[in-house]
Nucleic acid binder design. Structure first.
Lengths: 163, 163
DNA sequence: GAAAATTTGCAACATTATAACATATGCAAA
DNA sequence: TTTGCATATGTTATAATGTTGCAAATTTTC
């Protein structure tokens, strides 16, 4: 349907990864931020699929790499990547996913498939403005909006139908 | 402004608590569910304010009560209360807050003040339908929607202004 | 090249949550 | 009324997630 639906369909994922890394380099350069080898490696790992990855999953792969890393290494890299809008934390899963709208100034909305774990990030202006209005009606000043929708992606709905 | 804004203003909170407990008893009776002493006590503790409480906070108070409880006791009680729509878990805070719309069939939206920690639960049909549409547009079937808005409540905005 | 700022390494620890299994309690049918 | 079943609780241990604090190394700036 939309180009955004990519994660739910087979695609050349290597292209996703290299685009993400290229974007990251560009964004960091623009912001005078240092995309060090560790940070870049963590970003690459997060991007290894469209399924969110836990900090300790990342840590495990770093260990396989031969990188003798401890939790703070990973959390610090993830903090950095979050601050520069390169990854998002999915609060309901305690895990992290690559941002598919890096650079754009956005409030993400996440569609999370409970079956296959893939996550689709959307920019939904209608949702954002509805939330904004609801907050205004209570004189609340929003700073950070978390919208996570768990359910079944199209592919997994179809699979379930075939039972 | 709206009646919902209660948590952000001084009010007779005892009334909140006793109403919540009465509602809970009614709902459990209706559902043939057993609101045991432990469960009721946990609910009461969660309701001690409009600030979300962590499981281990609850545990600590139970300990003061003389109740020699372990984590599973608390988590089981919280699971029960969640299943019956009596409390909500705030994913972004790993903590729990009393449901102010118990019984109503609702998808909550939470306004969470980062300053005073109070949480206001709203039912925002406009938001719900916007989310629903965004999901449909991707052929995604939503099952569970988490919307948490962190920011500053009216009172804390005013306080900040007085600096 | 020296001083300052940033990043990383590392050890310990804090917080949040669950697994597995035993015991107890309430409730319903014989 | 007691037997049996489902539900609820107790208990111990452990897993999973995240943080603090300080020292060493690296990069940047002057």
């Amino acid at each position: 349907m939309s180009a955004n639906a990519l994660p739910y369909r087979p695609h050349n994922h290597d292209a996703c990864v290299s685009r993400a890394l290229a974007d990251a380099r560009a964004i960091c350069q623009q912001n005078n931020a240092r995309l060090t080898p560790t940070r870049e490696r963590v970003l690459e790992l997060i991007w290894q699929s469209h399924k969110p990855l836990g900090a300790y999953d990342v840590l495990a792969v770093l260990a396989e790499d031969g990188h003798n890393a401890a939790p703070p290494t990973v959390y610090r890299a993830l903090d950095f990547l979050q601050q520069h809008g390169l990854v998002h934390r999915i609060a309901s899963l305690n895990s992290f996913v690559g941002c598919t709208h890096a650079g754009e100034n956005h409030n993400g909305l996440f569609l999370i498939c409970r079956q296959c774990s893939n996550v689709l990030e959307l920019t939904a202006p209608a949702v954002a403005s509805a939330v904004s209005e609801a907050a205004s009606a209570e004189a609340f000043r929003p700073e950070d909006v978390t919208i996570e929708v768990a359910g079944l992606c199209p592919r997994c709905q179809a699979d379930a139908g075939n039972d």
